Structure formats: structure tokens, C-alpha cells
Simulated assay, not measured.
Amino acid sequence: MVFKKTSNSVYDCSIIEFSTIENREGSISIIENDISIPFAVKRSFYIYDIPAGKDRGAHAHKRCHQLLVAACGSFEVEMDDGKSKRTVVLNRPYFGLHIPPGIWAAEKGFSGGSICMVLTSEKYDEHDYLRDYEQFKQYVRGKDSFNG
């Protein structure tokens, strides 16, 4: 008998618009655990001083959800679920891209001065990473079905 395991697709990755308060002194965007994003943040970091046009990322996670925000500047995120690919552009600090586990993601084409803020559902765990694309494809194929 074959059972289907749930696996995420690139179409499960979603753009989230944050609540924003605007006035003449500037704007504030609000990100709240389990309210404006679908997980509680356990880790946050940001990537900066990326030379214009360079790439980052190129890995997947087994359990960790991520939220990517272009806090400054712009970049593209290429997503791959092993079957389909999708690219989105992040260029506004009030939008975030939610990437669930099992999606290969690569950040590309950074504009000069970009800052990529990342919020995650898990603390850092090297064993959660899939850093080799061929291993990622094997992992995804193994999640599609199994014999029970």
C-alpha cells in the first residue's frame, strides 16, 4: 500500500503584507508571531553588505519555516520544490515571503545596499539543512510516497 506524505510546493510559499502605520515622520510595519506570520519566531538574522548582483542561500530546510523580508533594496528569491520552480521579487519592507520546509530557495540579484531580514521558526540546527541540490531532490522524492 502507498501512502502520500504531505510535502510543500512552491505554490505554498506566500507573500505576506504586514500591517503598516504611516505618518509624516515615517512608517512602521508590524510582524507578530502566529498572527501576521504563520509561526512563532525563534531566530532572526539579517544579511547585508552583499555585493550587487551576487547570490545567497541555495538550500532547503527539513522542519524550519522562514520569512524573508527586503528590509532595504531588492532581490529575487528562486524557489524549487523538486517539480516546479517559481521566482518572486522582494523590494518593499512591508512584504515578506513565507517559505515552508522542503523548498529549495536561493536569493539572487541583490541591489546595492540591500538588507535581507530572515525570521525562522526554529533555532539554528545544521542537521535541518539540505545544502546539496541532489540530496534535496532525493529528500523530496522520499517525501512523495512511502510503503507502509
Rank of each mutant, 00 (worst) to 15 (best):
F18S: 04
R63N: 12
V140I: 15
A106K: 12
S19T: 10
S27D: 10
G82E: 08
E107P: 00
A60W: 12
D128M: 08
I30E: 12
V2F: 11
K123D: 04
Q135P: 00
A70N: 05
E122C: 12
C116V: 14
F39G: 04
S74F: 06
A52R: 08
V89D: 04
D144Y: 03
V89H: 11
H61T: 01
R56L: 13
V118P: 05
I31E: 07
R141K: 14
S27K: 13
H65G: 05
F136W: 11
H61C: 00
F136T: 02
I103R: 07
V89A: 06
I37Q: 01
L130S: 02
C13P: 01
R63C: 05
A52P: 05
Y94N: 15
Y46I: 07
I35N: 10
F18W: 14
K62W: 00
K83V: 02
D34M: 10
L68D: 02
G57W: 00
L90I: 07
H65R: 02
H59G: 13
E17S: 10
S9L: 02
Y48F: 13
F75L: 09
R131G: 05
K4M: 13
G112S: 14
E25H: 13
R92P: 01
S9I: 02
D34N: 15
T6E: 14
R86W: 05
G82Q: 09
G112M: 09
N147W: 06
F3H: 12
G109C: 03
S14P: 03
I21C: 10
P100C: 03
H59S: 13
N147A: 09
F110K: 05
